[in-house]
Design a protein around this nucleic acid. Structure first.
Lengths: 191, 191
DNA sequence: ACTCGATACTTTACTTTGTAAAGCATCGAG
DNA sequence: CTCGATGCTTTACAAAGTAAAGTATCGAGT
């Protein structure tokens, strides 16, 4: 039995599935969860509060997927590709959550829980990179630069893909294999 | 004498400056422009229409900045860094426009004008890369992959910087020089 | 000079949404 | 058996999106 706030966040997913990301209203989320139209406001304070909680959960899931990729891969270079693929799958399977990921105006960026959830994703990437570096890859590169480069690339690639600009150059291709291929090239270039 | 639609788009900037990106309402844009509260809806149909027009203009400006970087730089490797820096400056100087840049739900992605404006930015990058490649850089690499890699990196870097995740690893640094440094490393790695 | 329609908005009106505030029911502690 | 805490609902209202109808101006045709 999940508690009410969790049910409300699930309702956000349901509402997005039915009405699209911009069809999310505080009232609909409440009624979708089988509660009153002010239930969401009651638990999360206001709309930004609701989105912040939703976003935090989204980051938590991404972080978990990245961690899983890091743990399951047999070697670090595969872990990097798997983590990137997990990010891409997340964007495709939960476009709702992904679309909210950077909607700053709708969220309270300074919430500690949100920070923490992002840190988790960050450290997941960090760990994978460090382990790969320990095998000799990109040994002379600054770890902060490596994180920034890989994360920025993967995030940017997925977002440009989803939002349109990369549709033309990779017409007819699928996101995940294309990302794996281009990212693998980048990784070997950085070596 | 600028025409009314242009004045309305300028009013969007003014409203964002005063009330933040989420403070943009169709009504406020109208009155901010000295017109009635339905003027913006009259010209752009509805709110997504207004945002689409605003976004199109934003892409046009980015495209122009990229083109300018390509034309003014003495050599192609500088042009790439300058174009990236222009993108970063755009994000910092017009956070309003930049924040709208990926708000898909609020825009009509399939508008031809928007496509065209994006193509302009795309071809600006394309040209710079081709010219750099003509000097021997990354000669054996696929141009589509190069575009995707560099654009994804620059866009992702700027966005992660602005939205928070890169704040921690580069604490205290400034966006533009950091981007130039990390991007220069990436460019030389790709060579 | 006069009409007519197009152009460029405004006015009115209605619905949805966010959110504050107060209300009510349940339940465990004393 | 009361009492306050809790978990939500009801009520209320202002702001915002938007449809529809209205008005004013102006240029072209007669």
């Amino acid at each position: 039995m999940s508690d009410t706030p969790t049910r409300l966040l699930d309702a956000v997913d349901a509402v997005i599935a039915e009405h699209g990301p911009s069809g999310v209203t505080v009232r609909r989320v409440g009624t979708q969860a089988g509660l009153s139209h002010t239930a969401a406001a009651h638990y999360f304070g206001d709309k930004p509060g609701l989105f912040t909680a939703y976003l935090t959960r989204a980051y938590d899931r991404i972080g978990a997927a990245i961690e899983a990729a890091g743990e399951e891969a047999d070697e670090p270079s595969h872990a990097m590709l798997d983590a990137a693929a997990a990010y891409a799958r997340f964007a495709l399977q939960e476009p709702s959550a992904f679309s909210v990921l950077q909607r700053l105006e709708l969220t309270r960026v300074d919430t500690p829980e949100l920070w923490q959830a992002r840190e988790r994703a960050y450290f997941g990437i960090n760990n994978i990179l460090l382990r790969h570096q320990a095998t000799g890859w990109a040994a002379d590169r600054n770890i902060a630069d490596l994180i920034a480069t890989t994360w920025a690339f993967v995030h940017g690639f997925v977002e440009l893909w989803v939002s349109g600009p990369l549709a033309a150059p990779f017409d007819g291709e699928e996101l995940e294999p294309t990302l794996r291929r281009v990212f693998a090239d980048l990784i070997s270039a950085l070596a």
